[in-house]
Design a protein around this nucleic acid. Structure first.
Length: 410
RNA sequence: GGACCCGUAGCGAAAUUGGUCAUCGCGCCUCCCUGUCACGGAGGAGACUGCCGGUUCGAGUCCGGUCGGGUCCGCCA
């Protein structure tokens, strides 16, 4: 029976069987050290020099567990029998047992099926696993129910971001660039809903923070008084999420500042001038993050009251100001949200103002004809959070098989 | 879409102002070593310097084109 490597310390003196992959071999004449990993851990195996195995092989090893100070972790396995379950047919293109894998991004991604085996690369996705579980848990605690909405759409949603077109039998369809319409509709059903799912953006960007398919952490909640109810909820959710990832310095109240204000502060404090009629740019976001850290000792900051020019038609506004926010984490936008229009007439008016085609959107509009409560929500980029937590050079390192302008394989 | 940058063994890098057999580390192959843990030691193989053309006595290095890749901006999560 297979014993997991992490259990080895509990079975000293027993003869056991482990199964895993050989990551390294250190050959010292008559004695040979094999470094074996399974999903639970790593162990050093003592083998004879003629065991016939190579790095990369998948093996089944039976032997005696010995306590030994000379071994890392204090235990080692003295091999009595080594079976090669699956032979590595070709030398690996790079070494997986080195502390750092040290590859160019392109190599890292071209050989993704192999580079993902490296412990440090794996750890990115083990953290991501914790993040996804924590978001789910935190949202349920807040009374949200999880939904999954379609990703093949018969009509385009928001303006701005472009859609990937796909053939759908005898029709044209697009890939969802947001669950926006469906989650709003579902507020009329469940009051509070959340979704974790892929979104597709057909924008040809070449940056370290964009990919064309990413996993969005979405939420939408009914019966809010204003968008600050959304902010408070998101604040709590993030605090819970991050504590599951052992990050405990998320403020009870993340600082909140108007866009126009932060632009003034950035100019006065850091001498960086952003023209009044433009959106905050990446450099400005970075400085806003710096300000939040210096002034409030916070890695997070909410920027609010963007001009309606930068916001989609469903956004609730007062005058020219959008009743919404962006959330920056370490100077990078990780979430956008706010209050939505929930009155039918107001929605139609906003669509006309923004030149949004009503044709094909009836399913959405009609839900409002039959009353949806005041509501708001957010969309949050899961991979961006990972990138920022770990300080990764590129968001692509936080995606198993990233899709960008140049890459759809592997 | 705009601006800028980079292509040198399987991988990561080096090559004064253009100048002898293109260098180093990892990995690979052979040999030595019973306690290594990035094991060590000796030897070896592996590159028409992305491709095409040009300038020059001479090009990895300069110029043009081409293919591949990256960064920043725009836009966004």
């Amino acid at each position: 029976m297979r014993l997991l490597i992490k259990e080895i310390a509990n079975h000293e003196g027993e003869t056991v069987n482990i199964k895993g992959r050989i990551f390294n071999i250190r050959n010292l004449g008559n004695i040979s050290f094999l470094i074996i990993r399974d999903y639970s851990g790593v162990i050093q195996v003592i083998a004879s020099k003629d065991s016939g195995v190579n790095p990369g092989d998948i093996v089944s090893i039976s032997g005696l567990i010995k306590k030994d100070e000379r071994a890392k972790g204090g235990y080692e396995l003295k091999a009595e029998n080594i079976d090669i379950i699956t032979k590595n047919k070709e030398t690996l293109p790079f070494d997986l047992e080195k502390e750092d894998i040290n590859l160019n991004l392109n190599t890292l991604l071209d050989y993704r099926t192999i580079s993902l085996r490296h412990p440090k690369i794996q750890s990115i996705f083990r953290l991501y696993d914790v993040l996804l579980g924590a978001y789910n848990k935190a949202m349920r605690e807040e009374g949200f129910i999880e939904i999954k909405t379609p990703k093949i759409l018969g009509s385009a949603s928001e303006g701005g971001a472009n859609f990937f077109q796909v053939d759908y039998f005898d029709k044209k369809a697009v890939l969802a660039q947001s669950p926006q319409f469906y989650k709003q509709i579902m507020v009329g059903v469940f009051d509070r809903v959340f979704e974790v799912g892929p979104v597709f953006r057909a924008e040809p960007h070449f940056t370290t923070r964009h990919v064309n398919e990413y996993i969005s952490l979405d939420a939408e909640m009914g019966y809010i008084d204003n968008f600050y109810d959304v902010i408070k909820t998101l604040n709590r959710v993030i605090k819970k999420m991050f504590s599951e990832m052992n990050i405990n310095d998320v403020p009870e109240e993340i600082p909140c500042i108007k866009l126009s204000e932060i632009k003034k502060i950035i100019k006065e404090r850091y001498g960086y001038d952003i023209p009044e009629d433009t959106d905050i740019d990446p450099k400005g976001e970075d400085l806003a993050g710096k300000y939040a850290k210096e002034e409030f000792n916070s890695d997070f900051i909410f920027l609010t009251h963007y001009p309606m020019d930068y916001r989609p038609f469903y956004t609730m506004s007062e005058g020219e100001e959008a009743m919404g926010f962006d959330l920056l984490y370490k100077g990078l936008e990780i979430a956008t949200g706010g209050q939505r229009i929930n009155e039918y007439d107001q929605l139609i008016e906003s669509m006309k103002k923004k030149n949004v085609e009503i044709n094909g959107m009836e399913f959405y509009i009609n839900a409002f004809k039959h009353a949806i409560p005041p509501h708001g929500g957010w969309g949050m980029g899961s991979e961006r959070i990972i990138k920022q937590i770990l300080g990764l050079d590129s968001i692509k390192e936080a995606v198993l098989f990233p899709r960008d302008v140049k890459r759809i394989v592997p």
